[in-house]
Amino acid sequence: MNLITAIDVNASGLTAQRKRVEVSSSNLANAQTTRTLQGGPYRRKDVVFETDSFDETLNIAMDDGISGVEVSQIVEDPRPFDRRYEPGHPDADAEGYVAYPNVNVMEEMANLVEGSRSYEANLAAISIVKTMINRTLELGR
């Protein structure tokens, strides 16, 4: 059904934006983390959005021109770590420098706001489609 697909398309937007906000939150939470399981400081992560023209709910390829979105991968930011001079820090190197994560707090805040706005836009679209479906169901009453 056409309108259900329209909801699915925007639902994929909700999922993708939520993922983005999650990753951004993780970056913020770990903005000062100098120890990770992989060793070394936390490296900033970023999501890659990709169009997705396959409808998993209906298990069919969607029509041309209609595509959802998905987070195809989560990549690590290759930018260098932030080196600060803190000789007393347990993770300081021989010269007294500590490598802090390459997370820019301002950048993450902007990312969070953008993600939540995009989420709202998808939500608005879904609620309009929902009204359309409800009205159709009342047809002929």
Binding site: A6, F49, D63, A125
Partner: peptide
């Protein structure tokens, strides 16, 4: 009706992909 709902899909797909490079 069929066309309007079809168009809703295309517009929705634009919203979903507003951040897709």
């Amino acid at each position: 009706l069929s066309w309007t709902s079809k168009r809703q899909q295309a517009l929705g797909s634009n919203v979903a992909n507003m951040d897709t490079p």
